[in-house]
């Protein structure tokens, strides 16, 4: 935490930059990080909470080990990504924004990741699956489930 904060001056306008780094590092924004940011930038906890909940990139809960994000941008939507999302919900038994009990999978519906030429698209962590179908998703999830590590 100190390392991240050390990169920035105490100007209040650095809040979002810092939150972005914290989100990147921990996968979510833990409460004690919020306390440290609050002290460092002299911004109240309430204001920080307000900013975190305003932006969809920031989360207050940890993500699963495998984070599945189905793109619901227009290009993907037109090419049927909603069906992929529905299938993911059904298969994992969780809703968008949730994490499975074993902490293995989490699911997100994102807006355009900019790979519209490959629509429909979903990602598992950093890997992009383009021109995807319900079957591609099934296979990707099954592969992870079969190989525990």
């Amino acid at each position: 935490m100190q390392e991240i904060l050390g990169k920035y001056s105490k100007e209040k306008s650095n809040l979002i930059q810092i939150l972005n780094e914290v989100q990147e590092y921990y996968g979510y924004i833990p409460e004690n990080a919020q306390v440290e940011i609050s002290e460092y930038l002299s911004i109240t906890m309430a204001q920080i909470y307000g900013v975190i909940t305003f932006y969809s990139r920031f989360t207050l809960k940890p993500r699963g080990k495998y984070h599945i994000a189905v793109c619901l941008g227009t290009a993907c939507y037109v090419k049927g990504s909603e069906k992929i999302l529905d299938r993911a919900k059904e298969k994992l038994g969780i809703d968008v924004g949730e994490t499975t009990k074993d902490g293995k999978f989490s699911l997100e519906a994102t807006r355009c990741i900019g790979a519209c030429g490959l629509a429909p698209v979903f990602t598992v962590n950093e890997e992009v699956y383009g021109k995807a179908t319900v079957k591609t998703l099934d296979e990707a999830i099954d592969k992870i489930m079969e190989n525990p590590e």
Binding site: K12, S13, L15, I16, Y55, S56, F58
Partner: peptide, 18 residues
């Protein structure tokens, strides 16, 4: 950080201000 409204110019300025 993922907010469509920030494409609106004054919202964008607010966001740059943190």
């Amino acid at each position: 950080a993922g907010a469509f409204v920030c494409g609106e110019e004054t919202a964008l300025l607010e966001s740059i201000e943190g």
